[in-house]
Design a protein around this nucleic acid. Structure first.
Length: 550
RNA sequence: GACCUCGUAGCUCAGCUGGUAGAGCAUCUGACUUUUAAUCAGGGGGUCGCGGGUUCGAAUCCCGCCGAGGUCACCA
């Protein structure tokens, strides 16, 4: 097929590639081999990523960064000098008013994202709001990026010569693009190849009259002068885009141009770009034929999902979740690990439901293996890239952070005491880190799981109880009125209350269960709940006594 | 139509350079004064979608087929 294949490290070729220099069998090693093969002995290697801040930068976009980050770390580990370039494609046009934004923003459609105001008025522009959120999340994750702001790059005139170059070769650019278009597609869009070749101007011009890109190119002088008509105001002017930098290359050429301008050696992209004949193929051809440079080594990656949420995420649909939001419930190292452990072409899910327990547990097991020294080189590398250093601490299992956290009202000292009394191993720093995440997971994302004490006594339920059951509750009250009741004492008492010498063992168990149910109903309106002894020990005693007053 | 991914225990999935099938949940048995949504120990459960091929050996590589999903528009 295309000559690109030599540089294309898509899944199958990755899996078939010979063992990398690193010898651990990881995909990242094989891709690094490819980079060093295509671009040997570079003084500086550039791994790139880029995102258009057209809405919330979500955790799917984040895979772009993580994929490039993995390569950068791998090349670094091999003694190469590396920079991790991140381009904010903020000079792209504002296409669509996303859900949740004032519909009147439709008047900004066609303007660059940095030319649209922030709907909330807190940031200098629409784009900046999303950039700031993402940049903060990257800081929290400990990922350092070399940011490029494309509005600044374009409007500084930096790309003027390249734009001229493209315009001078516009027939060739048209030709290359036509190669990737199908006849069927052309018919559907009513595209006539001849007309396309003749009239194709591969530039976007942001009109000085309207600010939007709704313009018609009238002529080009072969240098840096362009005449356009603003379709919104019907005004015509000629500009020299070297002095009046309001011209931008469209996406397809923009990518190829920057590969050359920034000397990019590796850049991943989502599978929407990676499809055969898709935008990456077109750009690779453009890079080679128009910019006389091999395309960077490419790695396509699958989408990331959320457990219990299907369909593609997008900012305009208003269902996007940012990496920063994920940090509410995931530790930074864990989040990075989840991205790095999978080969890029494998999709995976993040979770806001109980699936997160498993992710934390698996992560804890890996880290424990690292500490014991019995993890594989591949595991060690992934953990190292995720920022995990072998520490001598026993993490608090996330499930327990949720369970113990809520019965201790998220009080760290009480939780530590409880953990100790209950023989649950956990180190204080780990508990301190995870408690807020567990709290957010429960209260913000899974409120239906919350076990809350009733505010008022459960009179309806109590009314249906007979004398004997009431007597049991009264006994419990008496015990709780003594301050000294410890977990162990409570444990014993709670089981002793319903006991009766006349009952068989089996009957005793049934009686105990019925009693527990009564207590749970009176306290939390449920048939079951956290282990009673611990629960009674941890909750506000006076309040419980009031709930148990029949 | 082109391309990609997935199809492994009841459920959710690990199994990445080929070497005697794994985890969690669920289930069963037992222990802890306990059939309580903070435990522990152990057991059962899979012809790894189907059919070929390569190999001493394949869930793992290759080919074909079936099934599910995805991407091909400037939306990762």
């Amino acid at each position: 097929m295309s000559q690109d294949q030599a540089f294309d490290v898509s899944t199958s070729s990755v899996l078939n590639a010979p063992q990398g220099e690193a010898g651990d069998g990881l995909w990242v090693g094989r891709v690094a081999d490819k980079v060093l093969e295509v671009f040997p002995d570079q003084p500086l290697y550039t791994c790139a990523a880029g995102i258009s801040p057209s809405g919330i930068v979500h955790f799917g976009n984040f895979r772009d960064v993580m994929t490039s980050y993995a390569l950068a770390r791998e090349l670094e580990a091999r003694g190469k000098k590396v920079r991790l370039l991140f381009s904010w494609d903020e000079y792209d046009r504002f296409r669509k008013v996303p859900a949740g934004v004032d519909p009147s923003f439709s008047r900004y459609i066609g303007m660059p994202l940095t030319g649209v105001p922030d709907p909330e008025g807190t940031y200098p522009s629409y784009a900046r709001r999303f950039e700031v959120e993402f940049e903060e999340a990257m800081r929290a994750l400990g990922i350092t990026l070399d940011y490029r702001y494309q509005t600044q790059e374009y409007t500084s005139g930096r790309y003027a010569d390249q734009i001229a170059h493209v315009l001078q070769h516009r027939e060739q650019a048209a030709e290359i693009q036509l190669r990737f278009k199908t006849e069927k597609g052309n018919q559907e869009k009513g595209l006539d190849p001849d007309t396309f070749r003749r009239t194709y101007f591969p530039v976007t011009v942001y009109s000085r009259f309207s600010g939007a890109d709704k313009v018609e190119i009238l002529s080009y002088d072969g240098g840096t002068k362009l005449t356009y008509r603003c379709l919104l105001t019907d005004k015509v002017e000629q500009i020299d885009f070297k002095e009046t930098p309001i011209v931008k290359l469209p996406w397809k050429l923009d990518w190829a141009m920057r590969w050359r301008e920034e000397q990019v050696h590796f850049e991943p992209a989502g599978k929407d770009h990676g499809t055969a004949g898709g935008s990456h193929d077109v750009n690779s051809a453009l890079a080679r034929e128009l910019f006389d440079r091999p395309a960077p080594v490419f790695q396509c990656y699958e989408f990331v999902g959320i457990q219990g949420m299907n369909g593609k995420m997008s900012g305009s649909k208003g269902n996007a979740i940012s990496p920063g939001t994920l940090l509410d419930i995931y530790e930074p190292e864990l989040l990075k690990w989840l991205y790095l452990r999978r080969v890029p072409m494998q999709s995976f899910n993040l979770a806001f439901d109980t699936e997160i327990y498993r992710q934390y547990d698996e992560f804890d097991r890996e880290v424990a293996g690292l500490r014991r020294g019995d993890s594989s080189p591949a595991q060690q590398k992934i953990l190292a890239f995720s920022g995990v250093a072998p520490k001598d601490e026993t993490p608090l299992a996330f499930k327990q952070a949720v369970a113990l956290g809520q019965i201790t009202q998220w009080q760290e000292d009480k939780l530590s005491a409880l953990a100790e009394k209950s023989g649950i191993p956990c180190s204080a720093p780990s508990a301190a880190r995870r408690l807020p995440k567990a709290k957010a997971w429960l209260t913000t994302y899974n409120p239906e799981e919350i076990i809350a004490l009733r505010t008022e006594p459960h009179l309806d339920y109590a009314g249906a109880m007979d004398e004997k059951r009431r007597a049991h509750i009264a006994k419990l009250r008496a015990i709780l009125e003594e301050d000294s009741a410890s977990i162990a004492a409570l444990e014993e008492q709670v089981y002793a209350i319903p006991k009766d010498p006349s009952l068989s063992e089996k009957e005793t168990k049934l009686a105990q269960r019925a009693f527990f149910k009564d207590v749970y109903q009176l306290l939390i309106t449920r048939d079951a709940g956290p282990r009673l002894s611990t629960f009674l020990w941890a909750v506000d005693r006076a309040h419980v006594l009031r709930l148990l007053t029949l």
